[in-house]
Design a protein around this nucleic acid. Structure first.
Lengths: 232, 232
DNA sequence: ACCATCGTTCGGCGGCGGCCGAAGTATCGC
DNA sequence: GCGATACTTCGGCCGCCGCCGAACGATGGT
């Protein structure tokens, strides 16, 4: 039919375990070099090159050459959204990770992380719930920011209103969390919120991964702004 | 990593043009027989059998045997949602369909159709816009049913409130329309709305496909309830 | 009982594509 | 310049998988 071959070729980009692992790694929203991705997926650099070519040609990734490095990242928030939808569609047996290091890394990720450009994990869900309780979000009839929530973002947090209307991206959207099985705030409001938290030093990345944790000043701010106290 | 192989195998189910065409055909929400799908995708029955096995084993489809027929349909609204997300991710060159028959079928589909279990096409978008204008939906901060919209569904249309809370499916959700590039109402509210329209004889399927059109009584009802007059 | 229809299983063919290593090109630091 | 590092291109190997036709159940109609 009309778009079956398009759909098949799009799915084909993710139908290989190595390419899937590359895309999942890039879900942290940052740019990785080709070599990092090759090491991360445990394939030869030449193999990674081939995969990156296919993903870039397919429009899922964009690249930026910088010196002798090739940086690559997800092309678009919509690509991240697409990946989230697919990962959310995996309610299959989640075999527990083996080894202690994997277990603690996994615990840190459950506690808090970035999901492309917004907050996820228990931290993301807790912020979302607190905003809902404070009347800033309305999850009763869907997932929407209230007028009070819009004011809170722009006036209390200082987000520029123009930054909330980027392209045709939705303002607020629920993103299903794959560790918490709950929705957390995504969309441009979620992206600006995460950006503000990072910029204010309220949260910090742990090491080089996508795990994040609140800083002492962040804990104080979250308590004052949203009444959040129990963050671990 | 944790779910790369799961993601790859899920994507692999859709990475074949024939299987993709099968899933898109099933997006009309109805059950098809294996033979119908074989004819629709122009492959031998034995080939279709193999594909259906893989899709059922992968959890995307469920089957029901009835006499010498094997009926198959999408397993779940979440599978439909997943497919919608992927199709929405295709802003690639949509080569115009060739041939007059394809063109008129395509025009009927653009005018109105079912998208799994809710309304889509210009009809679906028009209903969604009218509901938004009447204060029944709020698309400003996301996509949510207002309290008035909830009352309208249950009192004016007679939808049982219990039918709106099915499992953990969201009540209202925006679904990006691939012909109109606009959002229309999905989620359980969208499903009940479509069900009610069909049950009241306000819309009828055209032939055996998923295209629908308003009936004369439906036009009157849409005009009285939502002020919709220009439906073609 | 018989045939027609629907679906399935099996074997075999052919091509696509993922993998690697070796050789080649670009860039950085000294 | 020179070596080291980052990446790419190329060729070849191998396995997977989509396709079909033919033969084989299974069901329903007559």
């Amino acid at each position: 039919m009309i778009s079956a071959s398009n759909l098949a070729s799009l799915a084909g980009l993710l139908a290989d375990e190595t390419r899937a692992a590359i895309c999942l790694a890039l879900l942290d929203g940052r740019a990785w070099t080709a070599g990092e991705l090759a090491a991360h997926t445990r394939v030869a650099p030449s193999t990674a090159t081939g995969h990156l070519h296919r993903l870039v040609d397919g429009g899922l990734l964009v690249q930026r050459r910088q010196g002798r490095h090739r940086y690559v990242q997800l092309a678009d928030p919509s690509v991240a959204h697409l990946l989230e939808s697919l990962v959310a569609g995996l309610d299959l047996r989640p075999a527990p990770p083996r080894g202690l290091r994997a277990a603690t890394a996994s615990a840190a990720l459950r506690r808090g992380r970035t999901c492309y450009d917004h907050l996820a994990g228990r931290l993301g869900v807790a912020v979302t719930d607190a905003m809902t309780g404070a009347g800033l979000l309305d999850q009763r009839g869907g997932f929407a920011l209230t007028p009070a929530g819009l004011g809170w973002l722009t006036e209390t947090l200082g987000v520029r209103p123009a930054a909330l209307r980027s392209g045709n991206r939705p303002l607020a959207r629920g993103c299903l969390d794959w560790t918490e099985r709950r929705q957390h705030l995504a969309g441009s409001a979620g992206a600006r919120l995460c950006e503000t938290f990072l910029g204010n030093g309220w949260i910090a990345r742990i090491g080089s991964g996508r795990a994040v944790r609140p800083t002492p000043s962040g804990r104080a701010a979250l308590r004052d702004l949203l009444g959040l106290t129990d963050l671990d």
